[in-house]
Design a protein around this nucleic acid. Structure first.
Length: 717
DNA sequence: CACGCGCGATTTTTT
DNA sequence: ATCGCGCGTG
């Protein structure tokens, strides 16, 4: 292969990045600036031109999907399959390290990965055992605490309790939780990273081995790395390594789960001879769209100065549509979708993106109504579905009998007479003898063959043993198939009303097919490998790919994707930016970045829509249009007037107002009011009747407040 | 022990 | 509006 095929398709800055030598690199890649291209060509360059062996580099991506895509593109570029290439997510790579060197960090070779759902179950269980009041700590709070500390690289004894009793309790809980995991050889997501970091930090020989091996470390979506991931990079790069990181501070949208875009600055401090390359030419959007995005993001205080540009023409103006309510918003979008398709375009070129999942409902209903095929991204992932987790719990218990979490999950599912009380007995025995629940159950059966629960428990034990016996020599997919058949799960789901049960059973057979073509990883057994796969990978549904569908997704899941026609729906203050992010400037800036991400998804045509009235969680909300709309220069936009439907809706609304607002609360939603302390504001939402009525007022200078009408002394303006 | 009602919460998502 | 979970009852 010659240099030209790698270099020719690149612009100047891209080329600079791809051909860089012997320097830590920082690539700031704006939206649509060819980031993935740079990464893949960089890898091709290293292998083909610098003759680097493929196993001397590591490439880290944010999602499994991105990893797969990168691998494919590299293989395409090099025209040879690249096996044993270390490309994956931080978690996937950490997992690989741990399987290889489990014994170095006191892990059982057969350790199992637990997902957040499993983790939460364990936490709830433990809270009960320790008599921790759920009023004092919500299980999710403790889960969040533990994961946060792990993401920061902290073990319980590294956290300072500061005489803070609440904090001290949380630390103690973290310690107990970890104890449970260690005893059961369970590793949660954050633990994968933390353990791997410790593995390398505490084993100098191993570390230097891997430092020599991975001379080149490439990291994508660098702005979204958390503390432990950054530390992992630092460790692996060592003194001689050459890190090559690619990111965009403007697209950092995961601060709320520990991502630190500050790592971009930190990196430059830690590697003083860093060469920075900025990719600012955008190949995706029209100039109007790009300029709108630039204008919005320019309102952020904290960002690296840069401005995307394009050679593309201005294109269409950005359309802004104000609807009366969410249904009219949806109806408007349906009309535009129809136009698009009638013009001979594909539905799959259309994306409907929104801030929160709850918004998808109305859109879905409208799409169904018009018989428009659509696909929703996100929502619950395949391997997270209840029926899949149930089936896998059987599989796990059959082959890893000390897996207490799985035992608890399925011991009475379907119900077989081993309820809370029976389970308690088992738990107590397990606790006393320091054994697993499985062993405790076996002990009970051996000890007393006359007890009431004996027959039930022993039937369960026989079932699991039978599963083991009959599937031991089978292929993984046959194992799963047979275990499902013996479990009674199918019969259980059949009883569920509606289509739900039917779907569940379908999913079970899909699980079997998923296992059929599954190829394991070299470092572990196929069973371990499959279970790890189930925990670490979402299980992308590629099913509907052939069908021409409108795409629905949140703005978060839209990152990295692009569509000719994009609708950003629900552009209302309170929804986007989200209410919970409006008060804190840093959070507001993150919302603005999210808006920037949204806008830059569009290639040709962008619609921004909002509703004056929106029913959310059963109550009507009246919000002003999103402040982000005001940040787009007027000359780039085209405000579309609503049509005849206006009158219909106004009468409808007037009726609602009348019936809801009695003479005692002479306010209307949208009414401007004056408050002694907070000044002027607009009534957004109401709740309750007459004397108990409360209103939510969005004050111009104080944000939104809930006030009881009878005390608030609001003056009408 | 199983089932059913009621209460509370309900941004964003990967791994 | 809806869904899941926890507690109380049959």
């Amino acid at each position: 292969m010659d240099v030209t095929s790698i270099i020719d398709p690149l612009n100047e800055p891209q080329r600079k990045a791809v051909t860089a030598s012997s320097k830590p690199m920082l690539i700031i890649a704006g939206a649509g600036s060819g980031k993935t291209r740079v990464l893949t060509h960089r890898i091709a360059w290293l292998i083909k031109i610098e003759n680097l062996s493929p196993h001397n580099l590591m490439a880290v991506t944010f999602t499994n999907k991105a990893a797969k895509e990168m691998k494919d593109r590299i293989e395409n570029l090099l025209e040879i399959p690249v096996n044993n290439l270390w490309i994956g997510t931080f978690h996937g790579i950490a997992h690989r390290f741990l399987r290889r060197h489990a014994e170095n960090v006191n892990l059982d070779k057969n350790f199992q990965i637990i997902d957040s759902d499993d983790q939460l179950r364990i936490i709830k269980r433990l809270m009960k055992n320790l008599n921790i009041d759920t009023d004092q700590f919500a299980p999710k709070e403790l889960q969040y605490f533990i994961n946060k500390k792990k993401d920061e690289g902290l073990r319980p004894n590294e956290i300072d309790g500061k005489n803070d009793s609440e904090l001290t309790q949380q630390i103690a809980f973290y310690r107990s939780y970890q104890d449970i995991c260690d005893k059961g050889s369970l590793v949660d997501f954050a633990e994968l990273l933390l353990r791997t970091h410790e593995l390398l930090a505490h084993n100098p020989d191993l570390l230097s081995h891997y430092q020599r091996k991975f001379k080149h470390l490439l990291i994508d979506e660098f702005q979204d790395t958390n503390v432990i991931q950054y530390a992992f990079m630092r460790l692996l790069v060592g003194q001689q390594g050459l890190p090559f990181v690619v990111g965009d501070d403007d697209q950092s949208i995961y601060r709320w789960r520990g991502a630190k875009m500050e790592h971009i600055d930190q990196y430059q401090k830690d590697y003083p001879n860093t060469e920075i390359v900025k990719l600012e030419q955008n190949y995706r959007s029209t100039a109007n769209i790009l300029n709108a995005a630039n204008a919005v993001i320019n309102n952020n205080e904290i960002r690296m100065p840069k401005e995307l540009w394009t050679e593309d023409s201005s294109g269409e103006l950005i359309k802004i549509f104000s609807a009366f309510n969410e249904r009219e918003e949806a109806a408007f979008i349906m009309g535009k979708i129809e136009d698009w398709v009638n013009d001979g375009n594909k539905r799959s070129e259309i994306a409907l993106i929104y801030r929160s999942n709850a918004q998808s409902r109305v859109l879905e209903e409208a799409l169904i109504n018009k018989s428009v095929p659509y696909k929703i991204y996100g929502g619950l992932r395949f391997f997270e579905r209840l029926e899949i987790k149930d089936a896998l719990a059987y599989l796990r218990l059959v082959y890893f009998q000390n897996d207490d979490a799985s035992f608890e999950r399925i011991v009475n599912k379907p119900t077989r007479g081993i309820g809370a009380k029976g389970l308690d007995t088992i738990r107590n025995i397990a606790k006393d003898k320091q054994t697993s629940l499985w062993e405790a159950a076996n002990d009970i059966c051996k000890a007393d063959k006359t007890g009431k629960s004996y027959s039930k428990l022993s039937a369960f034990i026989s079932l699991i043993n039978k599963m083991k016996r009959e599937t031991d020599t089978l292929e993984i997919s046959e194992k799963i198939d047979h275990i499902i058949n013996l479990s009674g799960l199918v019969e259980l789901y059949e009883k569920e009303k509606g289509e739900k049960g039917y779907t569940r059973i379908e999913n079970l057979s899909e699980l079997v097919s998923a296992a059929k073509g599954f190829e394991g990883d070299e470092d572990m057994s196929i069973l371990d490998s499959f279970l790890a796969h189930a925990a670490l990978e979402a299980g992308d549904e590629q099913a509907n790919e052939w069908e021409d569908c409108v795409q629905l997704m949140t703005m978060h899941s839209a990152k990295g994707l692009e569509y000719p026609l994009v609708f950003m729906c629900g552009m209302e203050d309170g929804l986007f930016p989200h209410q919970r992010s409006m008060a804190n400037p840093k959070n507001l800036e993150e919302e603005r970045r999210l808006c920037y991400v949204g806008i830059t998804r569009a290639k040709k045509l962008l619609y921004l829509t909002y509703a004056e009235q929106r029913r959310l969680h059963g109550i009507d909300n009246f919000s002003p249009s999103s402040r982000f709309l005001d940040e787009i220069p007027k000359e780039l936009t085209d405000e579309i007037r609503s049509n005849y439907q206006k009158t219909t809706y106004i009468t409808q609304n007037a009726k609602n107002y009348k019936s809801r607002f009695t003479s005692e609360a002479p306010f209307q939603l949208g009414q401007r009011v004056l408050h002694k302390k907070f000044g002027e504001g607009t009534i957004m939402t109401y709740e309750g009747e007459s004397a108990h009525a409360r209103v939510q007022v969005n004050f111009d200078n104080f944000g939104s407040k809930w006030l009881v009408v009878s005390y608030a002394n609001l003056d009408l303006i």
